[in-house]
Amino acid sequence: MTFRTFNTLLRGIFAENKVKDAVELFKKLVRDKICEPDEFMCAIVMNGLSKRGHTQKASSLLRLMEQGSSKPDLFIYNSVIDALCEDGNLDAAINILNEIKQKDIYPDIVTYNSIIDGLCKLGLWEKIETLFSEMVNLNMYPDVCTFTILTDGLCKEGKVEDAGEVMEHMVEKGVEPNVITYNVIMDGYCLRGQLDRARRIVDILIDKGIEPDSGAGK
């Protein structure tokens, strides 16, 4: 069998949520020296574990890869960082971020968005400001996903006015809000009973030619 065959098989097993079977197959490939996993195969396993909540197994595999010949790339690090953030383990996620920078692996917007999302959920706004400073130093500017994450975090804390300012700032910087961003701010207004403002957002969507989805205006 070729690498491609095993990779397809691993993807299929993960797609059926048979995580244990996928891990056993991967271990067998390594243990019996059937093939030496390359970065692509490791990425399939890492992503499969991370997306299904097996963060500890993914973290262990990451450390194993770091000791082997197939070193983890940014995609693999991002998978683990995102899983750690989903688990609320922000300290571990930030530690990995600092580690990869020391290895001259440059984080991208996906890396920062995962950590910013995790920090927003915990209301750690000072740490978010620190990350923004890091991004500026790396000549990296927040994208629509970053701004939407911030808007959502602020709205969930009842800081809808601050969320509105974030949206205004993103427009000033030439980043156009998408329907998800508008839905987030509308939800924020609705939670505060400001239905007139929520309806005005719907009008803005229509004026911009953006079709409101099923969540808009609720």
Rank of each mutant, 00 (worst) to 15 (best):
T111M: 12
E157A: 10
I128P: 02
I100M: 04
L119K: 09
A83Q: 15
S79D: 06
N78A: 07
D117A: 10
I96D: 02
I105F: 04
L84A: 12
G88W: 02
G88D: 09
I109T: 01
T151F: 09
A83T: 03
K103L: 09
F147A: 03
L131K: 14
D152I: 12
D117G: 07
K121G: 08
K71E: 10
V110F: 04
T151P: 03
M65T: 10
R63A: 12
C85T: 05
V80D: 00
P72R: 15
H54F: 12
K156T: 08
E134L: 15
I115E: 04
D82V: 14
G153N: 12
I76E: 00
G118R: 08
L122F: 04
K71D: 06
L62C: 10
I96C: 03
G158W: 11
K51Q: 02
R63N: 06
N47V: 14
M46W: 09
L119G: 10
T111L: 11
C120I: 11
G53M: 11
I115G: 12
Y106G: 13
I94W: 15
V80L: 03
F132L: 13
Y106M: 08
T55V: 01
E134M: 11
Q102N: 12
F147R: 08
I76T: 00
I94F: 06
D108W: 03
Y106I: 06
I100A: 03
D91I: 00
S70Y: 14
C85W: 14
T130L: 13
L124V: 03
L154G: 02
